[in-house]
């Protein structure tokens, strides 16, 4: 299990054999915190023992660097333009995003639609569950004690901190991701975007609008509340 089984030829100049963890790739910043030294120690030990290779770590980082909110924005823009796709997306998120080439393995991707009556906002009070496989790593605030604690109890105050002020006639529905589903908000399509193409629409779909802390941008590209 020490050899690379990716099947990519350019991986074959490998770092897989024991005691080869050099040259050390320089960190952008020298480690100074205890945990940074621990990260290095564990990584070196795992490489020395053949549990992982340095190349596998680098490839995994690269793979995850490719997961960005723009992927979700593409999904949302497609749903705004194509009612049949939207229907499939709301029925089975995993299958529908696969149509656009996005994998979402292991967990159930549930897309929930914001409407004029219901505004959904996602949180994970118990840890930090997030549709990472599509949007990439969550923002720091999503993982914070403040966001995780307060959103289920004072959603209107939290939304206001994000500049999102909704009428009392709208039901704010806080979705606590407590189990095996990962939620993606399908924000409302902004008025004044008739005739826009997918690429153009996708630019209005922010990460926060897919978490539900914000609305999609206005046609002028501004935040709306």
């Amino acid at each position: 299990m020490t050899h690379d089984d990716h099947g990519d030829e350019h991986h074959d100049h490998d770092h897989g054999h024991p005691h080869d963890h050099g040259p050390f790739q320089p960190d952008l910043k020298e480690p100074s915190e205890d945990w940074e030294f621990l990260e290095i120690a564990l990584r070196e030990l795992l490489i020395d023992k053949g549990v992982i290779t340095a190349r596998e770590v680098e490839d995994k980082i690269e793979e995850w660097d490719g997961k960005v909110p723009e992927n979700g924005a593409k999904v949302v823009a497609r749903a705004w333009l194509d009612p049949a796709f939207k229907k499939r997306l709301l029925a089975d998120g995993n299958k529908a995003v696969a149509e656009l080439g996005f994998e979402f393995p292991g967990l159930k991707l549930v897309v929930i639609e914001n409407t004029s009556k219901v505004h959904n906002v996602i949180v994970c009070t118990l840890c930090s569950c997030y549709p990472r496989a599509l949007l990439g790593l969550p923002p720091l605030w999503y993982k914070s004690r403040e966001y995780r604690s307060r959103t289920v109890r004072e959603p209107r105050a939290v939304l206001r901190e994000f500049g999102t002020d909704l009428a009392d006639s709208v039901e704010v529905r806080v979705v606590d991701s407590t189990a095996d589903c990962r939620f993606l908000v399908l924000p409302r399509r902004p008025d004044g975007t008739d005739g826009w193409n997918e690429e153009h629409l996708a630019k209005l779909v922010t990460r926060d609008s897919m978490i539900g802390t914000a609305l999609a941008l206005t046609p002028q590209g501004e935040r709306s509340s």
Binding site: L28, K29, W141, S144, E146, S149, R150, V158, F162
Partner: peptide, 23 residues
């Protein structure tokens, strides 16, 4: 298990994960 606890304002600054964090 912190849902509903009182807490301060949310720090909404963006943070680019460091290389160590991504590792």
């Amino acid at each position: 298990d912190m849902g509903g606890d009182a807490a301060g304002p949310i720090d909404r600054h963006e943070h680019e994960p460091s290389l160590a964090e991504r590792r």
